[in-house]
């Protein structure tokens, strides 16, 4: 069946301003949106730029705005949309556009790195692996599903108003290590995000949870960080 795709185009080498270009694609209802973009690039316009890698919702490369909602192009099918086979495809909001649907995610990864997204433990490693209790693991398991697609951070209204806000994705990663009993830097981690550029920037607006393509309850996880900070403050006073 015929589907109409209206796609955001911007090539800094040629265009002064962004524009929208229309393509007609012959697609099945079970085709992914990414399949349609591939069809356009292979059969109609090889200059269309967008990111993708695994095409199965694992690599997190192809988060786009599809019909005004942030989605992974590889996880959404044509039939998932009730828009009469009409699609508007735009790059992720908030980030700078490099070309067409490709945005510069470097600021996103800078923030990700700022929460030190790795295990910190200076103690001598035991003979075998460091064990984690399955109950603790279950608690932060949702955060492990994060594929760093940047959907949450680009959708977050706070990110858009405060450029220094570290954003839901980075805080989620911090959450993952704060509640990991093997990590020894819990206090430093909490202190680092104990301000309005950190976890208190979050006003529990739930946009991150709403758009997360992996169904992670991000807002709740951030709430757990807030709760731990308050508890510690109470215990100290």
């Amino acid at each position: 069946m015929k589907c109409t795709f209206i796609i955001y185009r911007f090539d800094p080498a040629v265009d002064k301003e962004s524009r929208y270009q229309e393509y007609i694609v012959d697609a099945d209802s079970t085709d992914k949106i990414l399949d349609c973009l591939n069809k356009i690039r292979w059969e109609q316009d090889a200059t269309l730029a967008y990111r993708y890698s695994c095409a199965h919702g694992i690599c997190g490369s192809d988060a786009l705005v599809i019909n005004s909602r942030v989605e992974l192009a590889c996880q959404m099918l044509v039939r998932d949309f009730k828009t009469g086979n009409n699609f508007v495809i735009e790059p992720l909001p908030f980030f700078k556009v490099i070309k067409d649907l490709v945005v510069d995610l470097e600021p996103f990864f800078d923030k990700h790195r700022s929460v030190r997204p790795y295990l910190i433990n200076d103690q001598k490693p035991p003979e075998q692996e460091r064990l984690q209790e399955s109950k603790t693991q279950e608690f932060f398991e949702p955060a492990l599903r994060c594929i760093l697609c940047a959907s949450c951070t680009s959708s977050c209204p706070i990110t858009r108003t405060n450029p220094d806000y570290v954003g839901p994705a980075a805080l989620l990663r911090a959450f993952r290590y704060i509640f990991d009993s093997r990590d020894a830097a819990t206090d430093e981690r909490l202190e680092k995000i104990n301000d309005t550029d950190g976890v208190w920037g979050c006003k529990s607006l739930w946009w991150c949870t709403d758009v997360c393509p992996k169904g992670i309850p991000i807002t709740k996880c951030l709430g757990q960080i807030k709760r731990v900070i308050k508890k510690k403050e109470k215990a100290a006073s």
Binding site: D11, A13, R41, D45, A46, T47, A49, K99, D100, V102
Partner: peptide, 12 residues
């Protein structure tokens, strides 16, 4: 031959 002659994110 290439349809995209650009130097930016040239997937072609």
């Amino acid at each position: 031959s290439l349809q995209d002659k650009g130097s930016c994110f040239n997937r072609d």
